[in-house]
Amino acid sequence: MVAVNPALGRAPRRRSPGRRKLTWTAWGFATPFLILFLVFMAGPIVASLLMSFTDLTTRDLRTPFNVNLVGFENYVHLFEDPRFLRSMLNTGIFVVVGVPLTIVVALLVALALNTGITKFRTVFRVGYYAPVVTSIVAIAIVWRFILQPDGLLNGFLSWFGITGPNWLEDTTWALPSLILMAVWRNIGTLMVIFLAGLQGVPQEQHEAAMMDGAGAVKRFANVTIPALRPALLFAAVITGIGFLQFFEEPFVMTRGGPLDSTLSGAMYTFNQFGFGNYSFASAASYVLFLAIVVLSLVQFRLLREKP
């Protein structure tokens, strides 16, 4: 960890003779990937944008080029649709509540694991990470049971004399329930990122601050947080991107209900695809894409290292 990075002293790469031949060889390595990339990733990304300006529906499935251009009509309709607006609002709530909550909980767990915990470290790590590797379909089965009216959560609450609601059928509680589920599912990833980031916190600075009589809170704010900044930025960006695409939880738990209270942007898009409104679904997916780009840029602005 303290050792000097041998890569730092590396000499600049020499230009080999026969550079043109090397370019051909290099493209030989890259071409198989490039073909798959163009056909199954870059192509569809562009196609989706183009589709969003047409009237493509399920009837045109076999003749996807035989469609009419409609300009921004799909986008206009989208923003006139109260269900779409509702889905964007839900997604917004989900991001604004879910992302900070996941980051804070994961950071607390990572900090706790990093403070001289030697026994059962692996057990803790495995336990907190287990939900990440688990199939959402299986998770849904268990969580539906936890959240149903006579389920586990209400059974637990009844010990304290609280009568819990029907979590998934209640328009007030359905979204918070899904947020809780998503936080539970994402803590592990961020915990690992923060644990890796905490390795980079300079121990000497911590000790120096301690000598100067700085308390734990002050040391956390002045030493730990600045050193964790890259990890925090990374965590915020990937969680933001993930939560903006909030789909699996409502899809398997509520199908967007009750009364659209858990309908997310991605869920709305998928529903439109299901109705056969392909061009409309593409337009909705691009609005979501744009939201992701904007959020990521904002996070980079806010969290990047101060010069």
């Binding site: 090397l22 990339f37 695409q245 997916s285």
Partner: peptide, 30 residues
Amino acid sequence: LEFAGKRLLFGMVLGTLMVPGVVTFVPLFV
């Protein structure tokens, strides 16, 4: 390896990291 188009290729790969799955879903199905 050094080759013409390397930066562009890597840039494209990085660029797609941010694209949500729903964007490619419909064209992929078609």
